[in-house]
């Protein structure tokens, strides 16, 4: 855990990238997360999180095809690295262990 610095919001974005697979580009991630979280997010916060995670090695990216809708600008498709998968798994493990050890009262 110690070497991974993954914030809460970053984790959500990362998981969305994994979920969306080939569709994982900025606006699509934003839409997906907005609908799941039921709140509005800014392009800036999504982009900032994506760039940060790319720098830390959780994501890699490449340009996709250009589309009419974006004024001819290309999308950048993001993909989680194996390291990211591992970290996500670790975090999930830690959480489920913690859940398992919690008293039943809270669990319901």
């Amino acid at each position: 855990m110690k070497k991974t610095k993954l914030g809460e919001f970053e984790e959500l974005v990362l998981m969305t990238v994994v979920v969306l697979q080939a569709d994982a580009y900025g606006v699509e991630i934003k839409r997906e997360l907005e609908s799941r979280l039921n709140e509005t997010l800014s392009v800036g916060s999504i982009q900032s999180a994506l760039k940060r995670m790319e720098e830390k090695g959780f994501l890699k990216s490449e340009f996709g095809e250009a589309s009419q809708k974006r004024g001819g600008k290309r999308k950048r498709i993001y993909q989680a690295t194996p390291h990211a998968h591992k970290v996500l798994q670790e975090m999930k493990d830690v959480r489920s262990q913690l859940w398992a050890s919690m008293p039943s009262m809270v669990r319901s």
Binding site: Y25, G26, V27, K30, V43, Q47, K51, F63, K69, R70, G71, K73, R74, K75, R76
Partner: peptide, 16 residues
Amino acid sequence: NYLEEIEGDMEEVFED
């Protein structure tokens, strides 16, 4: 180097 992607995103959101 982020400009094309972000500008595109912004435009897409704007159209939405």
